[in-house]
Amino acid sequence: MTQAIGCRVEATPGNTPITHIPDDYMPAGSGRWLILPEGPDAGKKLFFYDHTFGGDGKRKVDATLVFVHGNPESSYTYSQVITEVERQAAAGKSCRVVAMDHIGFGLSDQASFEMVDMHHANNLKQLIAHLNLTEVTLVIHDWGGAIGTGAFIDTPERVKHLVLMNTTIFPMPLQGMNCTNFPMRWLPWNTLGYRVPWRLWKHIPPIVMFSSVGPWKMITRTLDYTLRAISGRLTEGEVLYRDMFKTRSNALSSKRNVKQTKVWGHGYRYFDKDQGWQDNRAFYQNMQKKVPECWGPSGQHIGVRGFWGEWDPCARAEVREQWQEALPQLSGHMQTFPEVGHFVEEHKFVEIAAGIVEVSGLG
């Protein structure tokens, strides 16, 4: 395995605020922390796990799956999908599974500035080089779409297949349903990044990630969560996502991603008190140009699958059409779920796993 110069790995965590790790967070013994050698996060510990199941260990694996999460998630959001992939894979097939927690999320070190997708993509590039990931089935959700695509697009030959879930790298239509009027016109998602104080932000992720479809169900979910939080009856997953953002630095970094949703895919400029002016417009333009060129029919013509929870701006028809225009091979390979919202991987993990198994040749 080729390592990037200057990379090293440790087996102990850094300053993550999470103190209780669910038993199914990762395959036993697979967790590691990469000490990032470059960029604004140099010296920080990036959590990842690298696990292989099936096969005899003597030949090349049949597939390499790389799972990239978004905000306000961690790699744990894919735990049910990954379990299902292993269950559904054909006997004798071997699969390498790689998943990571971005800085400021999960078991990685806390953020030290307000990070967005281009910063996380730069960190992921270092992990890709360290693990020498090739022939990858890239699985992306939410901001993981821009992070994962942005990390791989300058070495596009590393990607063999792409699996999309409620994500975009293209300019979100400014008319119709978007993050300035969803899920409620009087309380849109984008404004929560401004309205909710950092001390209360830790309660937003466990509420929205496990909420049912519809404004009133979200309100009911909020009341139910509040009562159970007061009485100490939260689930392991709810505790995990709450504790992940109980520090000011992680909460502010997560809130910055939410502020960006107003112009998702258009590019974004903001001022960070530690890093100065930050601008990810060139980051998006690079992906928007190279994805069709490199991964479309005139390039590598990679296999693509899409899964969409329809109660979500990221799943609206116009967004799906943008993906299909860039990657025409996606036609006939999308599943939509009207009764599901943004966090489709938490609800339709059986169907998503089946798509991953099929496209990556594990069936």
Rank of each mutant, 00 (worst) to 15 (best):
N257A: 11
S74Y: 10
A42Y: 03
L227C: 13
V350K: 13
L252W: 06
E86D: 02
M100C: 06
V139I: 15
K262I: 02
M184H: 08
V81E: 01
D41V: 02
T16P: 06
H102R: 09
A121G: 09
Y284W: 10
R242V: 00
C179F: 13
R256Q: 15
R242W: 07
P215Y: 11
L127Y: 09
V208P: 05
S30Q: 05
W201V: 09
Q322E: 05
H51A: 07
C179S: 11
K202Y: 14
P17Y: 10
Q335N: 14
E325R: 15
T180M: 12
Y25W: 11
D50K: 08
Q329P: 07
W186N: 06
V344R: 02
Y268G: 00
E325T: 08
A63R: 06
L164S: 05
A317L: 11
G6V: 03
M115W: 13
L330S: 04
D272I: 03
R242L: 11
W33F: 10
I82C: 07
E73T: 12
A354L: 01
R316Y: 10
R8P: 00
W264T: 08
R87Q: 12
G303P: 00
D154S: 12
I207Y: 02
N178Q: 03
G299C: 04
M244L: 14
V85D: 00
L240E: 01
E84P: 05
N178K: 05
R242G: 04
V319N: 07
W295Y: 10
T220N: 12
T64D: 06
T64S: 06
L131E: 08
V98C: 06
Y25L: 09
A353K: 05
D243Y: 13
P13G: 03
W33L: 09
D23H: 03
S75A: 15
V291W: 04
A89K: 13
H266Y: 10
I103C: 01
P183Q: 00
P183E: 07
V116N: 09
E238N: 08
W189K: 03
C179L: 03
V136H: 04
